[in-house]
Design a protein around this nucleic acid. Structure first.
Length: 280
RNA sequence: GCCCACGAUAGCCGAG
């Protein structure tokens, strides 16, 4: 059964839902009982394919087969609804879980927080952050990341700093994701100075900037109109072995174009093609 | 605690 599950998972991850589904039927025919993991994997596959209806249908089949949906099953459903922008339905799943006697875990709440973070609803994100703690769950680094992103998206950078502070008190170490979210928060506001400060601090603490860090920072420079600094950053990243990708170049092309230097924009565009990247 | 399932970061454009 574990072997089957691994196979089913492989098919789902490569978007071959028909084959995954076929395998499920084969398991049934051979008299093997698919486990709750099997079902959850398939439901996850449908969710990632954007097919909420089929995902719900599978939940139904799962229950009919006498398999109890687990926390992960509910999490997957919430994730799908969140991706689809159906926050209210996603939130309703929490109540459904509780009614079914299933306990939400930190991921359950983090999924909802992420959803609210994406639309800049800090208040709601925070609401579930609190709820998580009320349930006696410990916020992990991903949960803090979601809260941080909510602050950044809402433009509440002071609150973002407060979140970092709380992480410290909770003894949760910052990682590259955390720094990148924060740096991007400043970048979105065109504050390359604060962004530079974050970049400086992360390096000081031994974190190596990655493609996300650099691209966000370049974006900050472009927004602030400092194309010189943007180009210097490109040089920096190459020097540290981080190759600019399509997004990095698009940021630059856009930056030069907004600064009314179409010829510079074109030069970046050519450089991108020479680097073997296809414009998208 | 670990094993087969679930959550996090960047650009432009389009759609609304």
């Amino acid at each position: 059964i574990v072997t089957y599950n691994i196979l089913v998972n492989a098919f789902c991850k490569t978007r071959k839902m028909d084959r995954a589904f076929g395998l499920l039927n084969r398991m049934r025919k051979e008299g093997q009982r698919p486990t709750f993991q099997t079902y959850t994997t398939i439901i996850d596959g449908f969710i990632r394919a954007g097919d909420i209806k089929m995902a719900l249908e599978m939940v139904h089949q799962m229950k009919k087969a006498g398999c109890k949906p687990s926390t992960a099953t509910y999490n997957v459903m919430m994730y799908g609804l969140v991706q689809d922008g159906q926050m209210n339905r996603a939130v309703a799943i929490i109540d459904e879980m509780v009614l079914a006697g299933i306990t939400p875990n930190e991921r359950s709440y983090t999924i909802l927080m992420e959803g609210y973070a994406c639309i800049g609803e800090l208040g709601n994100a925070y609401k579930f952050f609190k709820k998580m703690k009320e349930d006696g769950l410990k916020a992990d680094i991903v949960s803090y990341g979601a809260l941080l992103k909510a602050c950044c998206k809402a433009g509440r950078m002071q609150s973002a700093l407060a979140v970092l502070h709380e992480m410290n008190s909770a003894g949760v170490e910052r990682n590259l994701f955390i720094y990148n979210i924060l740096l991007d928060g400043w970048a979105q506001r065109g504050d390359m100075w604060e962004a530079a400060e974050v970049l400086h601090q992360m390096c000081k603490e031994g974190h190596h900037p990655d493609i996300y860090t650099y691209t966000s920072f370049i974006n900050a420079c472009c927004k602030a109109g400092d194309m010189k600094r943007a180009m210097e950053t490109v040089a920096d990243m190459k020097r540290t072995g981080v190759e600019p990708n399509i997004k990095t170049y698009t940021t630059l092309v856009h930056g030069w174009a907004s600064a009314s230097y179409p010829e510079k924009a074109l030069a970046c565009y050519h450089e991108m093609k020479e680097a073997g990247l296809k414009p998208d």
